[in-house]
Structures are given as C-alpha cells and as structure tokens.
Simulated assay, not measured.
Amino acid sequence: MTTPPTSYHVHGAVSAGGHATLTAADQVIPVDASWAADEPSGDPGPAELLAGALAACMMKNLERSSALLGFRYQSAEVDVRARRQDVPPRFVELDYEIRLVTDENERRVDLVHRNLQQFGTVYNTLAAVCDVHGRIVVVPVGTEPAAT
C-alpha cells in the first residue's frame, strides 16, 4: 500500500468572459467562472466543486473503511446540498445523503458513518467552519433500482 500525498496542486486558468478550467491530477475540469451571465454555462461553479469535494471525500473514505474494517458494500451514491448566505458571503450548511447498497447490519453502518465523519480531511475542514451533517440510507442488496 502506498502512502497518500499530503500536499496537492491544482492549476486554474480563466479567459475574459469567465471561460475557465482547473487542472488537477492530470485531468482538465471545465469551470463556470462567469459573473452575471445571461445563460449558465453548464459547467460546475465553485459552489458545486466544493460540494463535489465533500461527496468525493465521503466516497474515498467509504472505500478506505471497506478496506480497513472489512465493510462490505456493492455501491453508493452521495448527494450533497450546500446552503450559503450573502452577508458575509459564506457557506452555512452542507447536508449529505449517502445511499448505500449493503448487507451489513445497522451497527456496522453506524460505525462506517462515524469513520466517514472522523477521518475525512475535506469533511473535517468544512465542519470546522460550517454545519456539516447527513445520513446514510441503507438499500438492501438485491432491492436497488436497475441502472438506466
């Protein structure tokens, strides 16, 4: 097992009109950096990227918990809703729901949920400055909807 990095680098570039990209881990991600545009660009903006970072943190730590705790799951989906205020401009709440397809019992699911909250770097960073909370909804194995 390799040691994960402890420092990260992301490069951003923007041209007039708000056409922007981020480059991270050799991937180029389009970003909406426009201001007061008539039409949304369809690309994620900073708020969606921040909520996405929390979702990615939860998914990565679910996989970590699976390896370290022997927690069995088939799949998971994470929805994050971010709420902000205007004055001063900041996020005040991040609410998440994890739909987890597993045959693990409630005690093990609760243990994994505590691990997601306790050991997530992005989770803990955001929880230090705003209300972060959520729930895991267990979907029993064999009852999940078919993928479309």
Score class of each variant (00 low, 15 high):
M1T: 10
T2H: 14
Y8E: 08
Y8H: 14
H9R: 15
V10D: 08
V10L: 09
V10A: 13
H11T: 14
H11Q: 14
H11S: 12
V14S: 13
S15K: 07
H19E: 07
H19C: 03
H19G: 07
A20L: 10
T21V: 10
A24V: 15
A25V: 03
A25F: 11
D26E: 03
Q27M: 13
W35T: 15
P40E: 05
P40W: 06
P44H: 14
G45C: 15
L49C: 04
G52E: 07
A55H: 11
C57E: 11
C57I: 00
M58V: 03
M58K: 12
M58T: 07
E63Q: 15
L68M: 07
L68P: 02
L69S: 13
F71E: 10
R72L: 07
Y73H: 09
Q74F: 03
S75V: 01
A76F: 02
E77L: 02
V78F: 10
D79G: 13
D79T: 15
Q85V: 02
V87L: 09
P88N: 00
P88R: 04
P89L: 03
P89M: 01
F91E: 04
V92L: 00
E97L: 05
I98V: 15
R99S: 08
V101S: 02
D103N: 14
E106G: 06
R107D: 15
R108H: 13
R108P: 02
R108G: 01
D110A: 15
N115I: 15
L116N: 06
Q118N: 08
F119N: 14
T121L: 11
V122L: 14
V122N: 05
Y123M: 12
N124G: 12
L126F: 06
A128I: 00
A128H: 09
V129N: 11
V132T: 09
V132R: 10
I136S: 06
V137L: 04
V138R: 06
P140V: 04
T143F: 05
A146N: 11
A147R: 11
T148G: 15
